[in-house]
Structures are given as C-alpha cells and as structure tokens.
Design a protein around this nucleic acid. Structure first.
Lengths: 114, 114
DNA sequence: CCAATACTTCACCATATGGAAAACCATTAT
DNA sequence: ATAATGGTTTTCCATATGGTGAAGTATTGG
C-alpha cells in the first residue's frame, strides 16, 4: 500500500507538457524516428530533443540509434505502472468511506462514484 | 478520441511533486485544515501554501474558509478524469495490437491485465 | 483588551525549464 | 569527393518553480 512507484516525480513531470504527451500518443501507434516525431511541432530540433530526453529519463520511451537515425519506442509498462497509482488512490477513498460500491469500482479500475 | 481532457498540463504538473502527492493522499482520507496538512512537511507555511495553490488551480482540491481556518477537500472526480487519460492510451495500443513489440512483451509475461 | 492562532502577503533568491541560434559530427546519397 | 540528411552539442536567454524570512490580517481564547 506504500509508495513503491517508480519515479512518479519524473513521469508526471514528463506528462505535464503537451508536446511530450503528443509524443507519447504518437508512439502509441508504433516506433518512429526523431525527426519524424519532431516534424509536427513548431520548435527547433534541439528543443525537441530535450523533450525526448525528459521522456527517456522518465522511462516513458526507449531510443536506439541505427546508422544516422534514432528510433523511439514507447515504454508502455511504465505508463501502466503510473496509471495504477490512481487506482491506489481510489482504493484509499474506498477504504475510508467503507462503501462497497466504491470499493468494487476501485478494484475494477474503471468506475467512479458520481 | 480527441483531447477532451481538462487541464492535463496543470494536473500532471501538480502531481509531479512529492509534497503535493502526499497532500492528495492525505486528503483521500478526508478534509483537513491547512496547518494540519502542513505540519508533516519540512518547509514554511508560505511555501506550503504555494503547493496548495498549485493543487487548487489544477482542480485537484477545493478549499473554503470558516473563521480563521481554511479547510481543504480532495476533488476526486478530477483525479478520476485524468486517470482515464491512461485508459485512452491503452485503448490506442490495443487498436494497434499487431505491433511486434507489443506482441513480444505480451509473450514475455510482463502482461498487463486488461 | 491582549495575546495566541491561523493563515496571508511581500520581497527576495537559487535553480530548473523551455526555447532559440549556431556550429559540429556522422552517415547516406550523388 | 561533395553534398545533403539526421542528429548532437554548446551557449545563451526569459520565465517559472520552490524555497526563505519578515511583516501583516483576521479570528478566536483568556
């Protein structure tokens, strides 16, 4: 029940930026190269590389270079881990309010009480 | 399928700090006053109030003053909304499930239960 | 009334973040 | 060999963030 979560700070920080979330979303469709990823965004490559750096050091993406191109892949499990933090929060409410409905939906992972 | 999410920037940014996550966690047990919330943390009240301000402007907490004390309440629905962003991401992967990476990690047994 | 409590505001500071510009590798392509 | 492509590194800048200390404002409590 304790904070056994990996780098919540860095992951949440990484996701707090629209550019970086767009990258995550794009990579959800499959791996791509850096410049292909960067194309839609109104900023220089150096700035964009910083975003990729933030995503990578948060463990949200993995990159590897082949020849002169670098390919980025989404680390889905990391995203899933962080997602489970929310489930834990919900479980807390459920415990506190001792409400069977809330408990069940918390364990189910999707429902909410309102 | 589009970004109909409320202020993901501000919510993720708010959650990217351990102090603020601790506040969220604490408020999951029920409403409390400012100074009661602040007590465990090794910082002055001004600094702590800034954290509360970030949480409040992200819509994660609600505060109201009675007399000279201010009481903070967790806005659970906001947390639930953001949580559903992760579900959306997963849905994207599922749609694109012919991806080799995903197939391999599925066979690898680090399976996600959904 | 006087003082303690519970914030609140203000001025300030160090560091981090997000961006630009320019110059610099490597690896293909011609 | 030369040029173009794809990325990288470096320097620099404006602003945001997270913290401090000190003083200020309302409420209670005695």
């Amino acid at each position: 029940m304790e904070n056994h979560y990996p780098a919540l700070d860095s992951v949440f920080h990484a996701l707090a930026d629209p550019t970086r979330r767009a990258v995550v979303q794009r990579l959800g469709q499959g791996p791509t190269t850096v410049s292909d990823l960067a194309r839609p965004f109104p900023m220089g490559l150096p700035a964009f590389l910083k975003h990729l750096g933030v995503l990578e050091s948060a463990g949200l993406i993995d990159t590897q270079k082949a020849g002169r191109t670098r390919t980025c892949t989404l680390q889905r499990d990391r995203l899933a881990q962080v997602s489970s933090w929310f489930d834990d929060q919900r479980a807390q409410w459920a415990y506190r309010y001792d409400n069977l409905d809330t408990l069940l939906s918390a364990l189910g992972g999707h429902g909410h009480d309102h």
